Simulated assay, not measured.
Amino acid sequence: MFDHIGLGVSDYAASKAFFLKALQPLGIGVVMEGPYGVGIGPPGKPALWLSQTSDKPAPLHLAFRAADRPQVDAFYRAALEAGGKDNGPPGLRPQYHPDYYGAFVIGPDGHNVEAVCHQPPR
C-alpha cells in the first residue's frame, strides 16, 4: 500500500545495524545511502528510510511481509541477536485470520517491528 516510510532514529548506527540484521532473512538490505540517511528494502527498492534525529517520535508498528513461516522464524532470531526485545514470538495469530503467522520485537527506538506471513504452511 505504501511506497516508502521515513523513520527518524536516535542512534543511526545502532538502528541501521538492527534493521539490517533483523531483516536480512527477508531479503532486505541497503539499497541507497548518503547524507540523507539509508534506504533499505528489497533489491532496487528502498522502502524504509532511516535518518538521524534528536526528536523523540512515538513508537510505530512496522510489519514486513515474509514469504513463508521459516522466514518469520529467522527474522525473530536475527532481530533478537541484533539487540531487539521480544514482543511476541513466532506463532499463529488467529484473531487476525487463520493463517496469520507473525513475530514481534521491539527495536532500538521502541518501535514494534514485525515479520508476518499470511500463507498456510507449505
Score class of each variant (00 low, 15 high):
Leu80Met: 12
Gly110Asp: 13
Tyr76Met: 05
Ser54Trp: 03
Leu7Asn: 05
Ala22Gly: 05
Gly102Pro: 06
Pro42His: 12
Asp109Ile: 00
Tyr36Gln: 09
Asp73Gln: 05
Thr53Gly: 14
Ala47Trp: 07
Leu20Val: 00
Gly37Arg: 02
Gln71Trp: 08
Gln95Trp: 11
Lys85Gln: 14
Cys117Asp: 15
Arg93Pro: 06
Phe64His: 06
Ser15Asp: 13
Met1Pro: 04
Arg122Met: 12
Gly110Lys: 02
Pro120Asn: 09
Asp109Tyr: 07
Ala17Gly: 05
Leu20Thr: 00
Ala67Ile: 04
Cys117His: 11
Pro108Glu: 13
Phe64Gln: 04
Ala13Phe: 06
Ala74Asn: 07
Phe75His: 06
Phe18Lys: 03
Ala58Met: 15
Asp55Tyr: 10
His97Tyr: 12
Tyr12Trp: 05
Pro90Leu: 15
Ile28Asp: 10
Asp3Glu: 15
Gly37Val: 00
Pro57Ile: 00
Ile40Leu: 12
Thr53Phe: 14
Ala103Met: 08
Asp99Gln: 09
Ala63Cys: 13
Val38Cys: 08
His97Val: 02
His111Cys: 12
Leu48Pro: 02
His118Pro: 08
Leu60Tyr: 08
Tyr36Cys: 05
Ala66Cys: 10
Tyr96Ser: 04
Arg77Phe: 00
Glu33Ala: 05
Gly41Thr: 02
Ser10His: 11
Pro121Lys: 01
Pro70Ser: 11
Arg93Asp: 15
Asn87Glu: 12
Asp55Met: 11
Asp99Asn: 14
Leu23Ile: 04
Pro43Trp: 07
Phe104Tyr: 13
Lys45Met: 13
Ser54Thr: 08
Phe2Asn: 06
Gly34Cys: 00
Arg77His: 08
Pro94Val: 08
Pro46Asn: 05
Ala17Asn: 04
Pro46Val: 02
Pro108Trp: 08
Pro90Cys: 11
Lys85Ser: 14
Thr53His: 11
Pro43Met: 10
Gly29Met: 06
Glu33Gly: 06
Leu26His: 01
Asp3Lys: 06
Ala47Cys: 12
Ala63Ile: 01
Asp99Lys: 04
Pro121Ser: 08
Arg122Val: 14
Val116Met: 11
Gly44Ile: 03
Tyr36His: 08
His97Pro: 01
Gln95Ser: 11
Pro42Val: 09
Tyr96His: 07
Glu114Lys: 03
Ala66Pro: 03
His61Lys: 07
Asp86Asn: 15
Lys45Trp: 09
Leu20Tyr: 03
Pro70Glu: 13
Gly8Trp: 02
Ala14Arg: 06
Lys56Ser: 15
Ala63Asn: 07
Asp55Cys: 07
Pro25His: 04
Ile40Asp: 10
Leu20Phe: 05
Phe19Lys: 02
Ile5Glu: 11
Pro42Gln: 14
Ser10Leu: 13
Ala66Ser: 10
Pro57Trp: 10
Gln52Ser: 13
Lys21Glu: 13
Asp109Arg: 01
Asp99Ala: 15
Ala79Trp: 00
Ser54Val: 04
Phe2Arg: 01
Gly83Ala: 08
Glu81His: 03
Glu81Pro: 00
Gln119Phe: 12
Ala66Arg: 01
Pro25Glu: 09
Tyr96Ile: 01
His61Leu: 13
Ala66Phe: 10
His118Gly: 12
Pro59Gly: 09
Pro108Asn: 13
Pro42Asp: 10
Leu80Trp: 04
Leu48Ala: 07
Phe18Pro: 03
Val9Asp: 07
Pro90Phe: 10
Phe64Met: 14
